[in-house]
């Protein structure tokens, strides 16, 4: 019998073949055309202007990890979207924030969420945090061809390691190269400024609320110096997406709370436009 198509309406053999717990592997067997990596790109001359997501920031604190992102998507020098959401839950104990070509990134996240859920349902157990990070590596590597043509997706992956009992952050490059970050990390066009800001603000012993404030400060600094990153928009009431993952699982901080934090940060900047000062020595 043909592995992928069935003439009688019964499930094709690929569906009933045991062995793989990976949705990606199954998709590769059954309908490879649905895998993002299998698409061929027409030859492109010059730069293509597509919506790009920008800055994602993550930092660990005592009981977990905070992952946040600004809301802007840019297309060349045009603001493509003011309220794009770029941070998503991957499963109960992890989240992924995306920078890069928005369309491809959102699809990658959808597939990644499904990959984790599929494994969980088939195996009756969840993947380890390292396992999840490695799966994401493989998916980014699958996008290498497009990345070489300028359509890169560079996520930041954060999760709570239930075995080790702490929050962890993984950053990636376009080849799927994965590295664990200790303390804090950032990705996207404003990441340089965000990382600089966090370097001065980050302390291991900050509470969750303090860490959320530090992250909003870092995003403010990124928006201050990078035109592609959006700051908190008090007039339209658009604020960064801030998520926290602890032993209790994934939680998105409600917009009203982020709004209050953002208000305090902006208030502080009125007195001190460059933000909080660190000691010189």
């Amino acid at each position: 019998m043909d592995n992928t198509r069935s003439t009688t309406g019964r499930l094709p053999a690929a569906f009933l073949t045991p062995g793989s717990s990976s949705f990606l592997d199954f998709l590769g067997d059954h309908s490879p055309e649905l895998l993002p990596g299998n698409r061929t790109l027409p030859p492109i001359k010059g730069a293509v202007e597509l919506p790009h997501g920008t800055t994602i920031v993550a930092a660990t604190f005592e009981s977990g990890v905070v992952l946040a992102g600004d809301r802007r998507a840019t297309m060349g020098n045009v603001i493509a979207s003011r309220d794009l959401e770029k941070v998503f839950p991957a499963d109960e104990f992890s989240a992924v924030g995306i920078a890069g070509t928005a369309g491809l990134a959102v699809e990658m996240v959808r597939l990644f969420q499904l990959e984790l859920e599929h494994y969980e349902k088939i195996e009756g157990a969840t993947l380890s945090l390292e396992g999840k990070a490695n799966r994401l590596s493989t998916m980014i590597r699958g996008n290498l061809g497009m990345a070489m043509q300028g359509l890169a997706v560079v996520p930041l992956f954060a999760g709570y390691d239930t075995v080790r009992g702490r929050g962890r952050i993984f950053s990636y490059d376009i080849t799927g190269g994965r590295s664990e970050e200790h303390g804090f990390a950032a990705t996207g066009s404003g990441s340089v400024y965000a990382r600089g800001a966090l370097k001065k603000l980050y302390r291991k012993d900050l509470t969750q609320d303090q860490m959320v404030t530090a992250i909003v400060q870092a995003l403010y600094d990124a928006a201050d110096d990078d035109s592609a990153t959006g700051g908190p928009d008090l007039t339209r009431r658009i604020f960064p997406v801030v998520t926290v993952i602890t032993a209790d699982g994934f939680r998105r901080i409600p917009d009203s709370d982020v709004a209050e934090t953002a208000r305090l940060v902006v208030e502080g900047r009125r007195q001190n436009p460059d933000g909080p000062r660190a000691e010189v020595l």
Binding site: L16, P18, F23, L27, H30, L111, L114, H118, K121, I122
Partner: peptide, 18 residues
Amino acid sequence: FENLRLGGVRYADLRGYT
């Protein structure tokens, strides 16, 4: 029935993704 369960999960996930 384990095979059928596997097929069902794959069917549902593929449909939800498509």
